[in-house]
């Protein structure tokens, strides 16, 4: 524009357009961002959030499917310590980048949900102030025992002990996991079933192979014995 200040006026026209438009079109409003997500995904009131027995009232659900904040230990349906999936293999403790997991293995085995005697963690502590929600522990766990929770209200007035979340507070059920991360939980369950089936099939194939080898050996021994007698 040829008049002095023309550029500034153009810019002011944009600002004016945004200011007036923000009363009519929500997307021009700078700070109110939530409206951009579809209505069905937002919890409408506190009563809609899923609650686990004994948890804080203001747990929040996740609006995004993979949203993560702090780990949690999974157990299958039943008593937490009887159906715990973690076998204290300590792989997550090794791989954790800021080294915030502290595990002590139990000294004797106990039956887990499948009926197999396994070790279990006598102590499993994660330090809230150190954990950086990187999710590496979830990735390296071979037993799908630790996954990410999206609960972020973990503050406590106790500076030293309060920031260490202990095993019993970390244990949450698989049903809760389905409630907060439905897609991820369903995919994980599917993968566990598929892995189990593959393992069974491999075991069966190996058993059949060894049976066939044993039969072949028995037949060969019989043939030899027959030859000897002839």
């Amino acid at each position: 524009m040829s008049i002095l200040g023309g550029g500034i006026f153009k810019g002011m026209a944009v600002t004016l357009r945004n200011f007036i438009g923000s009363y009519f079109h929500k997307e021009r409003l700078i700070t109110n961002d939530y409206e951009w997500r579809s209505e069905g995904e937002l919890p409408q009131s506190i009563g809609d959030y899923p609650k686990e027995e004994g948890e804080q009232l203001r747990d929040t659900t996740t609006v995004n499917h993979y949203s993560r904040n702090f780990p949690m230990l999974l157990h299958d349906t039943g008593e937490p310590m009887d159906t715990i999936r973690c076998v204290a293999c300590q792989i997550c403790e090794r791989e954790c980048p800021p080294q915030c997991i502290y595990i002590e293995k139990s000294t004797e085995k106990k039956e887990n949900a499948d009926g197999k005697p396994q070790f279990y963690p006598a102590k499993f502590d994660i330090d809230v102030s150190v954990c950086m929600s990187c999710q590496i522990c979830v990735e390296v766990c071979p037993f799908d025992a630790i996954v990410m929770n999206s609960q972020f209200e973990l503050s406590t007035p106790n500076r030293f002990g309060g920031l260490l979340v202990r095993r019993d507070d970390l244990l949450k059920s698989n049903d809760y996991y389905h409630k907060i991360h439905p897609q991820e939980a369903a995919a994980r369950d599917q993968k566990m079933v598929a892995d189990k089936a593959a393992k069974e099939a491999k075991k069966k194939a190996a058993a059949e192979k060894s049976k066939a080898a044993a039969e072949a050996r028995a037949a060969a021994a019989e043939a030899e014995a027959k030859e000897d007698t002839e």
Binding site: N18, I30, D33, W36, N64, Y66, S133
Partner: peptide
């Protein structure tokens, strides 16, 4: 703030894909 308005939309996309807005890993 206009820039951040657009940035928020993209960070929402990042959170939906990876679980975290900034430290995506």
């Amino acid at each position: 703030m206009y820039a951040f308005r657009e940035r928020e939309k993209i960070l929402d996309l990042f959170e939906q894909a990876s679980g975290a807005r900034m430290m995506c890993n």
